[in-house]
Nucleic acid binder design. Sequence first.
DNA 1: ACCTTTATAGTCACTCTGACTATAAAAAAC
DNA 2: GTTTTTTATAGTCAGAGTGACTATAAAGGT
Lengths: 251, 251
Amino acid sequence: MNEETKYDPHAFEPFAVTVDLAVFTVRESRLHVLLIRRGQDPYAGAWALPGGFILPRECAGDAARRELAEETGLSQESAAALHLEQLRTYSDPGRDPRMRVVSVAYTALVPGLPEPRGGGDAAHAQWMPVGGLPELAFDHARIITDARERIRAKLEYTCLATAFCPPQFTLGELQQVYETVWGVELDRPNFRRKVLASPGFVEPVEGAPRRTGGRGKPAALYRAGTAAALHPPLLRPERRSERRPEGERSV
Amino acid sequence: MNEETKYDPHAFEPFAVTVDLAVFTVRESRLHVLLIRRGQDPYAGAWALPGGFILPRECAGDAARRELAEETGLSQESAAALHLEQLRTYSDPGRDPRMRVVSVAYTALVPGLPEPRGGGDAAHAQWMPVGGLPELAFDHARIITDARERIRAKLEYTCLATAFCPPQFTLGELQQVYETVWGVELDRPNFRRKVLASPGFVEPVEGAPRRTGGRGKPAALYRAGTAAALHPPLLRPERRSERRPEGERSV
DNA sequence: ACCTTTATAGTCACTCTGACTATAAAAAAC
DNA sequence: GTTTTTTATAGTCAGAGTGACTATAAAGGT
């Protein structure tokens, strides 16, 4: 920042700085986002992303973890273990009708099961499928759109998908994550081959295979590996069809 | 944001919100970043990224464009044409010793030539090679590190590299961008083959080939294509060696 | 003229990928 | 209890993509 010639704290109206959280999970083969119902104006009664003000001695990431713990009833420790990633900052002057609010949006991915139960803010927290969301407060619909696109892209070249899975999971469950987030069907043997060929993506668990509700042959269990990036990347099939038609090639 | 239970503008010390700009260019096969010398404390005399406060009725992106135009002497129009991308927001409570400053960092890529000349803030603006930067003010060294990593990654799967090139460029120049940003040497025929096979990455210009300072065979000229994403991606060679050794494969 | 330099064309083996077939092991249907 | 269905896993094959490399073309330098 170059405040040298412009620094005058009174020359500017105060900015409020908040965090917003786009927390996603996969349930019943559908992507869900965590929403809360607003109790006050503006947008009283509307659904909104969880979030809140950054405290004076707190960075945005800490604020996001704190809000997430508060509003989902998660313990501070399990919130600390979550995959939380800064998405981007929304600063449109009109995005909050009351005052100038700049919001740093974060994305978190959680395994399917945990129901948001909660003390305090979590009273009205609820998972909603991202298809057919209601009207959302502020620019939160935009934030969700951006977050979804970010997740879609990151599944291609990172190991992020395991963040949607419980500590132990089958390759079928991992494939469901990809299929749900990308909205495509993938060939099972090919998916398996690529995942297992990506070093550090998943590691086999030596325990017994699971079967529980499953109708077919029991699947082997895996846990998330240590790698963060995926090489080679797992490209989504759609994009391949953006290929230029034959004969149009340059030179 | 969930201000419903917490909204009290006086409960929080005011936050200042700024933008910081990490503007890169490739000169003489080295990546350079645009820095300005600070005239005032804190960090008087130190080098810093250009940037400044967001105005009351301005979003962060507009502020970034305005500051960039002011501090590089670019016209507002050419600044509007630049590739400007939000990097991330830095909100550490101690990052500015004077007060709580949250800064939204942006990355911009410009073609090699334009020397920052400037009215106003630009008086002390200068391109500095990213290898061996001096001590920087605030957390700006961190911002530059993050920005470089972002650019390195985006060259793989987007057409971003053309933003470093003038309107017309040779494939050799484009390759230099990759080699400079990635810090690797690439095989020229293979690079050529991959770029031309990526639909919409570059388009041939029908004019005469250039030769100017060149010592060898004149190269054909290209301009940036219309595509934003690169399929298939141009993976940097380093990462391939992260491959897991033979025999360690799961299952 | 020759050498050097850069651009461009092409080759070849290897890998990766998508599409597909086959087999195994469980639950559900009969 | 046998058959059918379902899911997991193994394997095959052709085509695309890639790295390493060779060859030729067209300029400037000596």
